[in-house]
Simulated assay, not measured.
Amino acid sequence: MTHIEIVEMDGQLLEGIGSYCLRSKKIGEGYKSKNKWLNQQFEKGLRYIQLLEEQKQVGFIEYTDAEYSSRVVHGKAI
């Protein structure tokens, strides 16, 4: 059975584990910019959850209040 670990990231863990991005190398400017943005957003309440399978990053969930989101989704309330 596969073991999935859920880790809520913060600035310290971000420095150690890093953000989840399969397309960027840790030394790349895009990766560094993403981590800088994440650290700024943590101060505004961003929640960043990484999913680890056998200690390998396999996905993430990122959410915040709509006023701070870069990807706001509007929907009809039911």
Results as ranks from 00 to 15, higher is better:
V58W: 03
L51E: 02
T64H: 03
Q57Y: 02
Q40A: 15
K26F: 01
W37F: 10
E53W: 15
K56Y: 08
Y48K: 04
S24D: 15
E5Q: 05
K26G: 05
Y48S: 08
K36T: 10
G11T: 12
V7D: 01
T64R: 02
C21Q: 14
Q50A: 05
Q55L: 04
E5A: 13
G45T: 07
K44L: 15
Q55A: 06
W37M: 10
Q41N: 11
I49Q: 03
Y63L: 02
G28Y: 11
L51Y: 02
Y63I: 01
G28S: 10
M9L: 13
N39D: 12
F60D: 12
I61G: 09
S33G: 13
H3K: 06
D10P: 09
K25L: 04
Q41H: 08
K25P: 04
S19R: 07
S24M: 10
Y31M: 02
Y31D: 07
H3I: 15
S19M: 08
I61V: 13
Q12L: 10
H3L: 09
F42V: 07
S24N: 11
Q57T: 11
L46N: 01
Q12W: 08
S19I: 06
Y31W: 13
Q41I: 02
I27R: 13
Q55G: 00
Y20H: 04
W37H: 13
Q55R: 04
Y63A: 03
Q40F: 04
E29Y: 09
E15A: 10
I49F: 05
C21T: 13
G59A: 03
T64S: 12
E53S: 13
Y48I: 06
K32M: 02
E15W: 12
M9S: 07
R47N: 12
G18F: 00
G30A: 12
V7R: 03
Q12S: 08
E54F: 10
K36M: 07
I27T: 10
G59R: 01
Q50E: 09
E29C: 01
N35K: 12
L46G: 04
W37N: 09
I6P: 06
Q12A: 09
S33E: 15
Y48R: 10
Y31V: 00
L52E: 00
V7K: 05
C21H: 14
K34S: 14
E8D: 02
N35I: 04
L52D: 00
G11Q: 03
G18I: 04
I61L: 15
E53T: 14
M9D: 01
E54N: 15
